[in-house]
Design a protein around this nucleic acid. Structure first.
Lengths: 340, 340
DNA sequence: CTCTGGCACTCAGCTGGACCGAGTGCCAGC
DNA sequence: GCTGGCACTCGGTCCAGCTGAGTGCCAGAG
């Protein structure tokens, strides 16, 4: 039907206009700025319908219309063409990410890059340990009954724990233990580590058994949520930009939620690789994110994402642009991690 | 002189009152709330003098007085008794910091703790590499010409770099190299590492010489500022509290400066252990910090600080309380690092 | 049945004047 | 040297009126 089609175009125009101007948009302005081929009066009728259906709303009588969460959702779902990044932007990404010296650096640069591209708050998750594989397990003796265990994963993550062991250890024993553990775990996904522990302890020579058990236990502990998950956050200064308009109750609860990390990590847990997830306003379960939208995607080349990254901003955001940016950065990060 | 003494008390009362109420303070309120033993009229005369001397100022005619940076400086310098932390606060510190599993965890908890105690933005610097000693150097072969070098310091910091080496390496060669490097560097302060490199390369067996040189070069690279310095920031949500009043131009430039880290690191570079440094408002060189005060101290048990920590907030802050909190947290962090 | 132009109506935001009160500086007197 | 009194200043608030953007509805044209 011609009507529905036009109404969709009206909705899209409202979203675009509101995103770029930040003013409630009225029928006259719409008719003037977008080539909808009909008069303001007709647009008014369409807007009345859209409002009744819950896609837009009026802040007060006699102000223009503003998209609702439902309106944004509809807009995002119908987003046919993700706008491609400009050449300059692609160049910026490469220039920004090349030359990173280690994982920490890669993620730090990514988060700054993403914040800069989208002018929103960016979040990047460290590669999940349980989906990474062991590259190397190192043991450093600290004292008679204490070992420092250092876990290095194929994604470049390094975790360290102090292990208290029941028996006294000598340099030689530690070396033996080290090669035993590496033989068992090297190359294995950490998710599978718990399966291997039982066998390993059983098959270990008696004098090492207690040590193997102790170290393995600590290894498994490091895999426990939530301490295993880490997040880098950047671009919080962007929250202070249009704040009063975008976040009614100031940015405080949002900043708190971001620092908590837990909330964001939970959202990240659901992302898949290459499929960008958008959650809008009220769709977010956590109260502090109720006025915000979250655009996220997993990174990592495999079928399961190593971790997630994304941006948080006002529901009034440039979804097309942000989706493109998030996707592009995720691809580069995935590549960089695969290389190293 | 009786006058000077009373004027000092008046200034102190103004600072205290303004810090706690956030309202410009007038002579009448001062006389009512503080037992200065004189009438409002007399206080007015004192205030006129204090204003002329630049310690306080009026936002507009017929509002109360507000301390200037100079006024805060005077107040801080005369701060005789740093108010001791309450028992509950000490308990909270212990409870908060005990049970940290590694350095990352210790610093993360510290920054949250400090933010919570002071209700300001907290910053904690990672222990400077150059002042740490090598605990262990690990090498993990990645490919024929690539090694992963992992540096573990006595402060618990772990740094990793990929080393491209000119010659092909086998497992045995790597093991040889590892023990050679550890023998040379283990226990040595990283600041002294550069001195040792020359000798080490010369004295190395010929077939290892190129490798030793390559790895050593990378090791020295990790010591180069600014990449070697890291910062943990927390409590940024506190900036959004009284913002409009405390930071005239919104919090944006401040957040940006904090994320840059460079500015804060430069301030941190000067802190000594156990002497709390306070820089107030205009005293800060960087423009973005011009409206803020920075309370910092070094941590670490030795004569030279391993790193610094502190809080950033409006000039209108509880200096006595914040100094106490910063000092206390620094002491605990120093202890924790010495233990591990 | 759909679109359009016209029209009366609503209401947020701005403007300007009046008022209030906290706070000041100054002065004469104790 | 301190104090009470007094005239003065001026930011903040309240209120009334105006303006203009935007709306809903309706009658008429295509």
């Amino acid at each position: 039907m011609a009507h529905d089609d036009r109404r969709l175009r009206v909705l899209r125009a409202i979203v675009q206009d509101y995103v770029s101007t930040n003013d409630p948009v009225g029928s006259k302005a719409l008719a003037a700025r977008y080539d909808l081929g009909v008069s303001p009066a007709t647009i008014r009728n369409d807007m009345a319908v859209l409002e009744e259906e819950g896609y837009i709303t009026q802040p007060h009588t006699s102000a223009g219309r503003v998209p609702t969460d439902k309106g944004y959702r509809f807009f995002v779902d119908r987003l046919s063409a993700v706008k491609p990044l400009s050449v300059a932007e692609r160049k910026a990404i490469e220039r920004f990410l090349d030359g990173a010296v280690d994982l920490h650096d890669v993620l730090g640069r990514s988060v700054r890059l993403l914040a800069q591209l989208t002018r929103q708050v960016a979040v990047v998750q460290y590669p999940t340990l349980s989906r990474s594989a062991v590259r190397h397990l190192e043991l450093v003796p600290l004292a008679a009954h204490r070992l420092l265990m250092v876990l290095i994963t194929d994604t470049g993550r390094v975790e360290q724990r102090v292990v208290e062991v029941p028996v006294e250890t000598e340099a030689e024993t530690v070396a033996e233990l080290r090669s035993l553990l590496n033989a068992a775990f090297a190359g294995a996904k950490l998710a599978e580590a718990s399966d291997k522990v039982g066998d390993l302890v059983d098959s270990a020579p008696p004098h090492l058994r207690a040590l193997v058990a102790g170290v393995s236990a600590t290894l498994l502990e490091t895999l426990v949520e939530p301490s295993e998950d880490r997040l880098v956050i950047g671009g919080t200064a962007n929250l202070a930009r249009g704040s009063a308009l975008d976040f009614p109750h100031t940015v405080r609860p949002l900043l708190e939620a971001l620092e908590e990390q837990v909330v964001v990590l939970r959202l990240m847990a659901e992302v898949g690789p290459s499929t960008v997830t958008v959650s809008i306003g009220e769709e977010n379960e956590h109260e502090a994110l109720t006025g915000a939208s979250f655009v996220s995607v997993g990174y990592g080349s495999g079928d399961q994402a190593l971790g997630g990254l994304g941006v948080v901003g006002p529901t009034r955001m440039d979804y097309a642009g942000n989706i493109a940016a998030v996707r592009a950065v995720a691809r580069y990060v995935g590549q960089l991690l695969a290389e190293s």
